[in-house]
Design a protein around this nucleic acid. Structure first.
Length: 455
RNA sequence: GUCCCCUUCGUCUAGCCCGGUCCAGGACACCUCGCUUUCACUGAGGUAACUGGGGUUCGAAUCCCCAAGGGGGCGCCA
């Protein structure tokens, strides 16, 4: 059995769309699952958009998402070159082959592919003009996801523009033949065009690869597929928001495919093990940012602390909360507290600010909520003497301080928790209060408590 | 317009191939309650779907047909 060869063939546009990412991902997963090859081929025939910066976006995004290619730019391989802009001679060769079959002709300076079948002229309501049509025999596409799809082309089509540039349908097929692709895995938006491609394979006498048309990713709300303008559509957005690439990749897998073992959050190795093209869904999926964020949080929490710290530290540095002079042990204890409850790294700075500066804001909504029960300033004033007596700062120690103060003032322990948290952190929520007190340290807690009461 | 693809909770989906175990399961989101010793959290619970209509069958989410709805293609874009 010959090796499975799949490819991802993006064109450099300057951004990396989430739909492209998932197409690449499914190709990559299939190759890795089957022990085949994953090839990167750049479709940079559009000269205007062909520059290195745009190419770099593709490479960076693929690498960020952990998709390595076995052949392609920067790697090489036996089927190069891997940029269409460098393959003009290949297209010429194949054009000659095709011309030799008598299936091409020139019209208006362009080269057209001729379908076989009875010809007639008809008004086309889409093109809004009279066009020559052909009663061609339908071709059957054996799609690994959709089964047999039958479709007939009904018009000859251009394969080389009048400026000499070959068009997508032609170069795509030629490259897939020349690079001996066994599986073409791409978005469903290409399904209708596949009949053109099969016509070309047949005319060139080349074996038709297996096709797999994956469902599209639709906008969160509103009609149509995700476009680059939609929120969440671009991979660079997740990079800049400090999403974990493993989480983005994990979520993307869930759009149109479900792991057999029922888990939603799982390591990539397990996904590779379970991935089968035949299990890919047929229906389009709608993008859900909240679910993505959830998956991200799950991955974040599963990280070993050292890894989390390694990722989180630059985020805090960027926010100006941490510098080279920050105490390393202190930073580690703060991060240990934050990790377990952090929604995402993008929230880290906001959530942990009070650990790094005394100049933190007070959340007035939280203040209002706490004040409904009792005046927090009064509670804190009552609590300060007990805080000053703290010794070990362990749970029992802190509980004792609160319990004693409560009974001395005819209140419940619960009356002190929220005020204390608010006084020392300015917010209504966060890590376990005992841990916050312990990490901040007795001196800082007392100083903030006093400041809070206005002393 | 035409051709192709699709159709289970708001969303992602399980189940569908091999009809009965499904008055349809899970997850996200949402809502409620509890922990009245907090919580970005945790625990418990809840609302919520087989697009519609025909057929086949003792029996259909599951098979067939039609309709409707959604998506995509139809370019000398990719």
């Amino acid at each position: 059995m010959s090796t499975i060869r799949t490819r991802f063939a993006p064109s450099p546009t300057g951004f990396f769309h989430i739909g492209s990412a998932r197409t690449a991902l499914f190709n990559w997963l299939f190759a890795r699952h089957t022990g085949g090859k994953f090839i990167l081929r750049v479709e940079d025939t559009d000269k205007e958009r062909n520059n290195d910066q745009y190419l770099q976006v593709i490479y960076d995004s693929l690498k960020w998402l952990g998709m390595d290619w076995d052949e392609g730019p920067g790697i090489g391989g036996n089927y190069g070159p891997y940029k269409q802009s460098e393959r003009a001679d290949v297209y010429q060769d194949y054009l000659k082959k095709l011309t030799a079959t008598g299936r091409t002709y020139e019209k208006d300076g362009a080269i057209w592919f001729r379908l076989e079948g009875e010809r007639y002229t008809e008004y086309d309501s889409f093109l809004k003009k009279e066009v020559e049509k052909v009663k061609a025999a339908p071709v059957t596409i054996n799609d690994l996801i959709r089964g047999k799809v039958e479709r007939a082309e009904d018009r000859d089509f251009v394969i080389v523009r009048n400026n000499g540039e070959p068009v997508f349908h032609f170069v795509n097929v030629v490259d897939d033949i020349a690079m001996e692709m066994t599986h073409v895995i791409r978005g469903e938006d290409h399904l209708s065009n596949t009949s053109k491609h099969v016509e070309l394979y047949n005319a060139l006498g080349a074996p038709v690869p297996a096709f797999a048309h994956i469902p599209l990713i639709l906008k969160t709300d509103g009609p149509g597929k995700m476009s680059k303008r939609d929120r969440g559509a671009l991979i660079e957005e997740y990079q800049s928001r400090h999403f974990l690439p493993a989480a983005v990749r994990n979520y993307l897998c869930l759009l149109g495919w479900t792991p057999k073992d029922g888990r939603e959050v799982l390591p990539i190795g397990d996904i590779i093990d379970q991935f089968e093209l035949s299990d890919v869904h047929q229906a389009n999926a709608r993008f859900d940012e909240k679910k993505m964020a959830f998956i991200n949080q799950q991955h974040l929490r599963a990280l070993p602390l050292e890894t989390f710290a390694w990722l989180a530290t630059p985020v805090l540095q960027q926010a100006g909360l941490v510098s080279d002079t920050t105490n390393e042990n202190y930073l580690q204890s703060v991060l240990a507290l934050c990790q377990e409850k952090l929604p995402g790294l993008e929230n880290l700075a906001d959530i942990s600010r009070y650990f790094f500066t005394d100049d933190f804001p007070y959340d007035e909504e939280a203040r209002a909520k706490i004040s409904k029960k009792s005046d927090p300033a009064i509670r804190i004033r009552q609590l300060i003497p007990a805080l000053e007596k703290l010794q070990k700062l362990d749970d029992a120690d802190i509980d004792a301080a609160i319990n004693d103060t409560a009974s001395a003032n005819g209140a419940k322990p619960g009356d002190y928790f929220a005020p204390l948290r608010f006084a020392i952190s300015g917010v209504g929520g966060g890590p376990h209060l005992h841990d916050v007190v312990r990490v901040l340290g007795k001196d800082r807690v007392i100083a903030r408590a006093k400041k809070f009461t206005g002393e």
